[in-house]
Nucleic acid binder design. Sequence first.
DNA 1: AAAAAACTGGACTATTTGGTCAGGAAATTG
DNA 2: CAATTTCCTGACCAAATAGTCCAGTTTTTT
Lengths: 228, 228
Amino acid sequence: MTRQIEPDSPETKRTTSSGDKRKKVRPGRIRERNRERILMAAEKEFSQNGFGATTVQKIADRAGLPKSNVLYYFSNKKRIYYALMDDIMGRWNEMFSKIQPEDDPATTLASFIHAKVELSRTHPLASRLFALEIIQGAPVLKDHLSTTMREWVQARAGVIQQWIDAGRMAPVDPVQLILLIWSSTQHYADFQVQILAIEDKSEYTESDFQHAADFLTSVILRGCGLAP
Amino acid sequence: MTRQIEPDSPETKRTTSSGDKRKKVRPGRIRERNRERILMAAEKEFSQNGFGATTVQKIADRAGLPKSNVLYYFSNKKRIYYALMDDIMGRWNEMFSKIQPEDDPATTLASFIHAKVELSRTHPLASRLFALEIIQGAPVLKDHLSTTMREWVQARAGVIQQWIDAGRMAPVDPVQLILLIWSSTQHYADFQVQILAIEDKSEYTESDFQHAADFLTSVILRGCGLAP
DNA sequence: AAAAAACTGGACTATTTGGTCAGGAAATTG
DNA sequence: CAATTTCCTGACCAAATAGTCCAGTTTTTT
C-alpha cells in the first residue's frame, strides 16, 4: 500500500522496501534487521507508555542499540511513531477484503469477526498503540480516519444496507453494526489486563480467543436476525 | 465508598470529604474549589497525554494556579492521578445497582446498557483516562480489577446464569456478555474521534447517544434471545 | 487582636530529555 | 588497494521537568 502517514518529510532514505518483516538477514544487510528491531522495540514502548512518555533511550535499550544509532535510522522520535502508524494502517488495510452484495451476510460477518479477533490476538501491541492514538485525539491518524477509514466503513455499510433492503437480515444501522464489531473485538487486545483480572487468569490461551470469537459471532449474528 | 486507590500515604490532609463537585463556594472555602479545579484540569491533561507526558505545569496552567500551589494540594504528580482514579472507580461503583434473579432480564440489561452509554456521554474524559490506565497495563488499578471489579462482574454473571438456567434467555457466556456491553458502550467515549471522523460529524449530539443506546439494546437483547 | 494554621508564588536544583555533531569504522567502489 | 561513500557512535548541550524551599500573605481559631 502507499505510505501516507508521515507528515514531515521522508524519514530517511530507504534502501530497501519496508513492511515485509522477518526477511532472512543477508550478510551485510544489517540495516533491515536494525530497522526492524527499532520498530519492534518502539511498538512495545509506545504502546506501554504512550508517545510522550516514551524516551528514545528506552527504545534504544530495548533494541540493543545506542541511542545515536536509533536516531541515525529515524531522524527523530516522531518519525519512529509515524512509521509504526503506517505499518499498522497498512496491515489493517490488507487484512479485510472487499465484501459484495451477493455474499452471504452470515458468513461474511462471521469471518469479519474472526479476522478481527485474530488481529487482536496476533498483534495486541499494535492494537493498543492504535487505541492510544485514537483516545488521545488521533493527532497523527486524524486525516486517515476521515478519508481512508471512512470510505472503508461506508463501503461496507452500503453492502450491509443492501442486505437489509433485500430482507436478508434485520434492519439494524449498518455503521453502528460495524462499530459494534470493531469495538467488541478490539477490546480483547486493548483491555487484556482487565479481562484477565476479571477472569482470574494470568494469560490468554488460544482457545480463549476462539471462545470469544464464537461468543461474539453467535450473539451478533442472532442480533442481526441471522441465526435462530 | 471507601478510598482504596492511593498506595503511598495519604495524599494531603483532607479537611472536607471529596467527591462532591460544584459545591457552592462559601467565602474562605477556597480549598474545595481549588482542589476541584486541579482535578478537573488534571483529568483533561492526563486523558489527553497520559500520565507520563502530562506535566504538573500544564495542569497548573489549566487550573489557573501556580505550579507550587498545585504541589501544595497534592504533594506530587502521582497523588493527583490516584485521586482521579479513586473518583472514577467511585463513580462507577455508585452507578450500577445490584441485580436480582427475580428481575426481568430484558429490562435489566437494557437499563444497564443505557446507564453505561450515559456514563460515556457525561464523563468522556474519565472514561478515556480509565482506558489509558488499562491499556498501559493498569499499574494503579490492577489490584482493584482483580478484587472489587472482579466480584462485581462475577455477581452479575451469576444472576445472568440463573436466568439462563431458568430458560429466560439464550445460553450465552455471562461474563462475555458483560464484556460485550462494557466494550461496546465504552467505545463511544474512548474512540469518539474515530466515530466522528467515520460519520463525518464534528461532535456528538444527545440523540446520537440515544441512537447508539437503542441500537446496542436491540442487537444485544435479540442476541440473547430476549427479543423477537 | 493575637496566635496558629492554611495558603501562595518566585527562585532554585538535580536530573532527564530530544537532538546534534564530529570523527571513526566498515563497506563499497574504481 | 586506495579512495569514497555509507554507516555508526560517544560526547555534548540547551531545554524542560518534578519537586523543594521559604518568606511572605491570608484566613481561621482562640
